[in-house]
Every structure is written in C-alpha cells, then in structure tokens.
Design a protein around this nucleic acid. Structure first.
Lengths: 136, 136
DNA sequence: CGGAATCCATTCGGATACTG
DNA sequence: CAGTATCCGAATGGATTCCG
C-alpha cells in the first residue's frame, strides 16, 4: 500500500491519505445519503430511545413534516432506524436506532462534540474572513 | 442540568441523548456547512499534505471547478484549510489542513471507515426495501 | 396522531466560456 | 495553472392541504 515510491513524477503525497478510487464510490453514496440537511441530526436525536413522530418533530427545531417523513423513511430503508407502528386508537409510531444506526450515531456524537468544542473558533474565523476591514 | 424530573409529562427519554436546545444552533451551523456534497470529501482528500488545485480536482472525481473553488473557499473561511499561493510563472497554489481541520479530518476518517465497513449492509437493506416482491 | 400529496421558492451544483 | 462569471436545469426543502 506504500505508494511513496519515487518512480512516478507526482509522488510526495502523504503516507495514508490517498483515498483509493474504489472507496470513493461508497464514500460518495454514504455522503450523499447522510449529507443532507437532517439525517445526521435525526440520527443524533433518535438515539434517545423510542421516540414518536411528534417527539422528533419537537426535538428537531425547524424541520417540516415533509422532511421528517422523508428523512425517516430513507434512514429506515438504509437500515439505520426501525419504525414500529401500534394499532391503537390514537395511532402511535415509534422510531429507534438499529445496531447499524448506533454505529453511525457514535460518529455523529464525535462530530457534535467537535462542533461544540470548536464552533467559537470557526465563528471567529468566519467573521474574520467576512470583515477584511480590520487593518490599522 | 438534570431535567429528568418527573414533573413534566413526557419524560422517560434516555439518559444522555437529550440534545440541549442551545447546542442545536451550532450543530445546525456545522451541519449546514459540512453537510454539502463535497466538504467532507475534500477534507478527507486534502489531508494528503499540500495539494494543488488540479491535484484536488483529479483526486475528487466528478467535482467541477466551480464547486471545488467554492468549497475550498468556504473551508478556508472556516479556518479548516489554508491556501498558499506562490507568485511563480506558472501560478502554484497549495491547500493544506489547519490544526482545526485535522481535528475534523479524524472524524471524517471514522465516517469513511464506517462507510467502508457497512456499505454492503446498507446496500442490502436498501435493495430489500426497494423490492417488496421477494416472498415465496 | 402520523402521515401523504401537491405546489412552489430557493438553492445547489454542473457545463461552458472567459481571464490573469 | 488557478481560478472567475454566467447560465440554467435539477434537486432540496418549506407551506399548505387532505387523509386513515
């Protein structure tokens, strides 16, 4: 796997970072699915045990019914969450993470933790980039 | 901070998963920035040391100049990558990860690893969901 | 309560052409 | 080489309305 050989002209890349082209395919697939506006957030929230539709809607501020339904369906089709419907008088539906989903949830937790740790730093950078004025 | 009091009606959620509403804000911000089509992929690729514009374009299959430029600019504004231009006859520009970006890169690596481990499983689920036919 | 369906604005993002 | 600028189709996603 060590492609640091000097035979090629454009070597000198790092040791492990060259992403194999074969991997690109499913990286893209996962990123396409998970890289929308709500999936990761929903993964993060639904971890709190079986949650009902309206619970999710309340916990995720700003999401519309449409997007909630759509995203939940996709996550379910990918095997990341389960949907359990109870045939009761007021219908009740509960969503939970599958084991597969829990694996992803750990990563989402990392991401959220990282965001929590560094969002100040990012906001500073962003503000600094937006204001090219500050120069004595 | 323990809101697990039984005064409310809808308690019974998990122990740690309730995401504080204050966190939601910057979770959304980070997700909005990072949850597009190319950011995470670029973070993953640019880790391979200083890479030039065309290198990135070659390493990320399918990206257009427009998106490459735009995404690189955003990542730079957020302080995740650095851009170094050399005033040479054929212009040369190199992109690298900042320390901040390297922190995110670790998480991206986890995500890619997870994707590599489970993409078969996901594809199976997805196919099974798409084909409701298979029943003897 | 838990959706599905339709409508529509905004955004995303690709193709192309041009520039320093 | 490393972008910028414009055009335009496609997809995202919100608001609203209706249904079982």
């Amino acid at each position: 796997m060590e492609v640091t050989g000097s035979s090629g002209g454009a070597a000198a890349v790092g040791p492990c970072a060259r992403i194999p082209a074969e991997h690109m395919e499913f990286i893209r697939q996962v990123l396409d699915r998970v890289g929308d506006k709500w999936s990761l957030l929903l993964i993060a929230v639904v971890e709190a045990g079986p949650l009902r539709y309206t619970d999710l809607q309340r916990q995720v501020p700003g999401i519309s019914q449409r997007m909630l339904t759509l995203t939940l369906r996709q996550l379910r089709e990918d095997g990341l969450i389960t949907r359990t419907a109870y045939a009761e008088v007021p219908p009740r539906v509960e969503y939970s993470l599958t084991p597969l989903g829990r694996g992803l949830h750990e990563i989402v937790t990392s991401l959220i933790g990282w965001a929590a740790d560094h969002h100040d730093e990012i906001r500073e950078h962003r503000a600094r980039a937006a204001a090219p004025a500050a120069r004595s």
